[in-house]
């Protein structure tokens, strides 16, 4: 999608705020921020971000396109909604953050190393394959994300839970070779394709 990215830059002539408003879910709320910072202080994951939401909004207004889209901030949102509840301007901050993440991802410029993003991608790939989440594959994929030795360590640490899940039938040991699918997986592909079409159309990706 690199070419889409370039096209966007050209089309919005450095007006990143406008680009966000037109392409990011709830993006037209960004202009309403008055920089009070209550969202930044309300976020339970706040200490772990590059930029708190209000700063991201200011960066958008200042046209810092590359920095914003490559930021890990929006990937850190856990949807606790503290920021939305407290925002004196009623900005749907949680939604904007997710919208920004989604947009960066679509443009192919999203933060590469962020584990949340990688996990999200992994989950997507996994669930869209058969229409059902393969717990074992997701877990192992997640554990071994940062290399083999780390993977072993994490798996051992999670051993008890894994066994527990297995005993209660929540984890299929054969999933590694062949997970359970669902009926009519072709229909799922169709559904997803249609969903993509609708979203692309709505956000103007086709034009």
């Amino acid at each position: 999608m690199g070419s889409t990215n370039t096209a966007k830059v050209d089309r919005y002539k450095n007006n990143f705020l406008k680009e966000v408003e037109e392409n990011v879910e709830e993006g037209d709320w960004v202009r309403m921020c008055m920089q009070c910072g209550v969202c930044a202080g309300s976020c339970p994951l706040g200490p772990h971000w590059d930029h708190p939401p209000q700063e991201i909004f200011m960066m958008i207004r200042a046209g810092k396109r590359d920095e914003v889209l490559a930021s890990d901030s929006m990937w850190m949102c856990t949807s606790c909604y503290n920021c939305i509840v407290r925002c004196p301007r009623e900005l749907p901050i949680t939604h904007i953050m997710h919208g920004l993440a989604n947009y960066a991802h679509r443009l192919g410029v999203a933060h590469q190393e962020n584990p949340t993003r990688r996990f999200a991608q992994m989950f997507w790939n996994n669930v869209t394959k058969t229409g059902r989440a393969n717990e074992l594959k997701i877990s192992l994929g997640l554990y071994f994300m940062d290399g083999f030795m780390n993977g072993i360590k994490k798996s051992l640490a999670m051993k008890k839970i894994g066994i527990g899940m297995f005993m209660t039938g929540r984890l299929d040991p054969f999933g590694l070779v062949q997970g359970r699918g669902c009926k009519g997986s072709g229909d799922i592909d169709k559904m997803l394709k249609k969903a993509f079409e609708i979203e692309d159309h709505r956000k103007g990706y086709n034009s």
Binding site: Q35, G37, V38, A40, G41, G46, P47, H51, P52, Q54
Partner: peptide, 11 residues
Amino acid sequence: LHGVDTEGYNR
């Protein structure tokens, strides 16, 4: 008091 000083981002 918990919050963020928005001038330069200090928690």
